Simulated scan of single mutants.
Amino acid sequence: MLCVITLKKNELKLLQFTDIHIGQTPFSEEDQKTFAMIDRTLSKSDADLIVITGDLIWSDGVIEPTKGLEALAEIFNKYPIPLAITYGNHDSEESLTRHDLHDLEKKLFHNLAVKTNQFLDPNQKECFTIEVKDKDEIVNVLYFIDSGANALIDYESYDWVSLEQIQWYDETFANYQTIKPTKDLLFLHIPLPEYQQAGDRIVDGKFWEMNPRISAPKLNTGLFSHLLKNNHLLGTFCGHDHDNNFEGIYLDQRLIYGNVTGYNCYGDLPRGYRVIYLKCDQMKTSIKTFE
């Protein structure tokens, strides 16, 4: 079932899960703990939308990595909460491709939010928007950009947002401007390089990653400059760095990490998720931990 996202009581409540990292079957004790905590959280939640910002699974060296996706889908399908997914660097490494992930998503997850403006760049990295409506009028737009996995020309670096994706973003933003200017959110997995500067201006959260403190791509293709020029985002959200969950501000742009969710991966931060409240032209957010 595809779900249209509409405001309730003039506000939208989102849960951001990130870096869940489900691994090999039979699932480890850490994975079982992750399943239980997500299930318990959703059973008590009144969220309007769930966003997963990548690394749902490990796929490198994992036999039948689709089993992890299937197990996650069983949990998320139990609750009638719309779901939006963008992928991370560990979701497609050996036996899975981005194309496979797109097909599996549609087959496995039953409550996907309606995507608009879908686009695939030459490497099958998906961009899309989700429209938030109030009485059939668009009041906010959620932008999703697949930031990729390993860099294709430097395997010691992470991928970067492609020029084609930036062009998609600019054109999509311009089209929405002809309808109605809105204040919006952006989600991706790998942090933009400018998260480094935002880390010097933290307003909330932890900055515990080391070597490097921000695992951004080496190549800066300039998406942040376009976000700055268009100046419509209430926040940009990523995952990827398990020991960062801060919100920082750089050139008046709010750059925000999700909170690592899965137990089957490195990191000292308590496991949990981020809650985001969106109300027309206002946004507030906070970390919630499982324990």
Rank of each mutant, 00 (worst) to 15 (best):
D243N: 13
I130W: 00
F109E: 00
I22A: 01
S95A: 10
L223S: 08
L186C: 05
K218F: 14
Y79K: 10
L14Q: 03
V51S: 00
A151I: 04
E131N: 14
G61K: 02
F27L: 04
A47G: 03
Y79M: 02
M1N: 09
Q118W: 00
G239L: 13
M1C: 08
I5W: 04
E70C: 02
E74C: 13
T41S: 14
Y158M: 13
N259A: 12
I81G: 06
G248S: 12
G248T: 09
V141Y: 02
E74S: 11
N117T: 08
A113L: 01
T236V: 15
R40Q: 14
V161I: 15
N89I: 12
K183H: 12
T172L: 05
G239A: 13
I85H: 04
E126T: 04
Y176D: 01
I63Y: 11
T178Y: 05
S157V: 05
D121C: 05
R98M: 08
A149P: 03
G267H: 10
R213F: 14
V62D: 00
H110C: 05
Y266M: 09
K9Y: 10
N220R: 13
Y263S: 06
K279W: 07
I190D: 05
Q177R: 14
F290Y: 04
Y79E: 02
G199A: 10
F35I: 03
L72S: 04
G239E: 12
G61Y: 01
D204E: 15
D154A: 11
T172N: 03
E94T: 15
A73S: 12
I256V: 15
I190P: 08
P193Y: 07
L15C: 03
F207V: 02
I57Q: 03
E126W: 05
L72P: 05
D91A: 07
N230F: 08
M1L: 11
D241S: 12
L152H: 11
Q24T: 03
